[in-house]
Computed example of a mutant assay.
Amino acid sequence: MSLVLVTGASGGLGLATATALADAGHDVVLHARDASRVTDKSFLSRMRDVVYADLADLDEIVGLARQANRIGRFDAVIHNAGVLNGPEVFAVNIVCPYVLTVLMTPPERSIVLSSSMHMSGSTDLDAVDFSRPGNRSRPYEDSKLYVTAFALALAGRRTDSLAHAVDPGWVPTRMGGRAAPDSLEEGHRTQEWLATADESEISPRSGGYWYHRRPRQPHPAARSAQFQRELMDKLEAHTGFALTAGTV
């Protein structure tokens, strides 16, 4: 039985992930922006706990990390929360996973949600302003490239734990739309497996980019040590928090 935090789990892929993990007997901590986001309260009794925070607000991300640390050390954190457009894209899609990773007691496994659209992300970090994603022509694509590179960088920096990025596919959620062609079930199966499977079943053990439980090659920049280093430096400068090796 694993203790798992799932961010952005009041609906869509996050809720599907959280409920599937709970049905499998795991202790799940569900995150939502606020109580009003949880329109169906019936599933809350199946959760170990529920935590609230606006992930577009740095102070609330810090508060979420504190809430999580009070619960205990997690076996896995699934960074599911995501925003498709608007001024919150960078804050939610990349700054939040970074800050939670820095401030939480390091979990045994970290899984971030990427997207095939990360392949169109810009590799020009010189002009990145994490507080102003609207200045970018493709902020969502950029954010998914960054979070993919972050996961692979984390795999290299915290070798005692596991870190992976997952492309869930284009699935029929509120974000994906009803016409999305991919399976909602397949869209959450990979991150559940990476969070709870025996390590011997996962290859590569860490630093993978996955689609439907199969490893794929990400954008070359995501594996570039220089790109990863520049990204981490940018995130540290923006947030004031530095990522350490994180062993416990």
Rank of each mutant, 00 (worst) to 15 (best):
S200M: 10
L154K: 11
G25V: 07
I202P: 11
I111W: 02
E60K: 15
Y209I: 08
N85L: 12
S131G: 11
R33N: 03
D54H: 06
P218S: 10
S36W: 01
D57Y: 01
D23R: 13
S137N: 07
G25W: 04
T196M: 08
L21D: 09
A221I: 08
K144G: 00
F74I: 00
I111T: 01
L154R: 15
G187A: 03
Y52M: 07
P204T: 08
W170V: 06
H26Q: 06
H164M: 02
A179S: 15
R66D: 15
R66P: 09
V166P: 01
L194D: 00
R37T: 14
N85M: 13
H118C: 12
D23V: 01
M104E: 01
G169I: 02
H212F: 07
L5C: 06
D54A: 11
S206T: 15
D182E: 14
G8V: 13
I94G: 06
A151I: 05
V6G: 07
P168E: 02
V166G: 02
I111F: 01
R46H: 14
T105S: 14
S122Y: 00
D40G: 10
Y146W: 13
L64Y: 03
K234M: 08
R189Y: 00
L103I: 08
W210K: 14
L5D: 02
I78F: 09
V4I: 12
L55K: 05
R73C: 12
Q226G: 05
T239R: 09
P181A: 09
S137G: 03
V6D: 03
S131Y: 05
K234L: 08
V29C: 03
S110L: 11
L30Q: 02
A179Y: 02
D124C: 14
S110C: 13
S143C: 06
R48Y: 05
G176S: 08
K144F: 00
V102C: 13
Y209F: 15
P220W: 13
G14W: 00
L235I: 01
S42W: 06
W170Y: 10
R213P: 10
